[in-house]
Design a protein around this nucleic acid. Structure first.
Lengths: 123, 123
DNA sequence: GGAAAATATATACTTCACTGCATAATTGTA
DNA sequence: TACAATTATGCAGTGAAGTATATATTTTCC
């Protein structure tokens, strides 16, 4: 379907804009000819997996990111997808990581409780 | 890269197994010839986006799901204890994820501030 | 072991993304 | 306005994924 191609195109263009790169620069880094890249950003072609991989590498995202319809990004590092934030947790100090860990524990415990209640109710 | 093709293959095979479908059935529903589908599941070809869409439709998942590696640690190499929890974040509800997201933002923003101060001091 | 079903492989042909190169068309700026 | 940079489009040739069909191979089950 054309829909996904347009979605990919939009995501790629957004990523390039976010990094303030010209098509020429992206193409130099990825090895994709500029003409072809332009066609991709305009949804004129259905990029192959290997092409998407090259671009994902340049933009430092996963290939899956190109298929996400959720465009709620913007603001610097904040509001990035959860998984991307998680990458940055590595840069935190030990005590800060532990604090986060505790918070995640709480959220998960809370979820577990809800799930257990739900199964009790439904069965 | 071959790696992604194999990953996709593994994910697709797993999805089919999970739904207890034969290749024939998947092919009947997706319109993909059985021979070609076999090649996909064996990582012999690089499936096109539109082919992945057909399969995503049959398996009732997003195309992005095909690119997910089963263990997050490979995708984003982090410290193990935290990573394991992160795996489970996926199972949380949207609002709970957002709450976590906010907390991570705070930690990261705090870290950024410290870093900035540090560069101010040292330079 | 043997039949049936499921899966893998083979072949010929078609389609389309990709490359390389060239050149419009657009946008930005002095 | 004029020039430069950026982006879009055109075209020939190549390669790989797609299709259809047939057949070999493996797995399942009695």
């Amino acid at each position: 379907m054309v829909q996904t191609v347009v979605l990919i195109a939009k995501n790629i263009r957004q990523l390039r804009g976010h990094k303030r790169l010209s098509q020429k620069e992206v193409c130099a880094d990825s090895g994709i000819p500029q003409g072809q890249y332009s066609r991709i950003e305009n949804g004129k072609v259905e990029p192959s997996i290997s092409t998407l991989e090259k671009l994902a590498s340049v933009f430092d995202v996963s290939v899956a990111a190109f298929f996400k319809s959720d465009d709620l990004e913007v603001d610097l590092n904040l509001n990035l997808p959860l998984t991307q934030k998680i990458k940055m947790i590595d840069t935190l100090a030990k005590d800060e990581q532990q604090a986060l860990s505790k918070m995640i524990d709480l959220a998960l415990a809370n979820k577990r409780m809800k799930d257990n209640l739900q199964t009790l109710i439904t069965q």
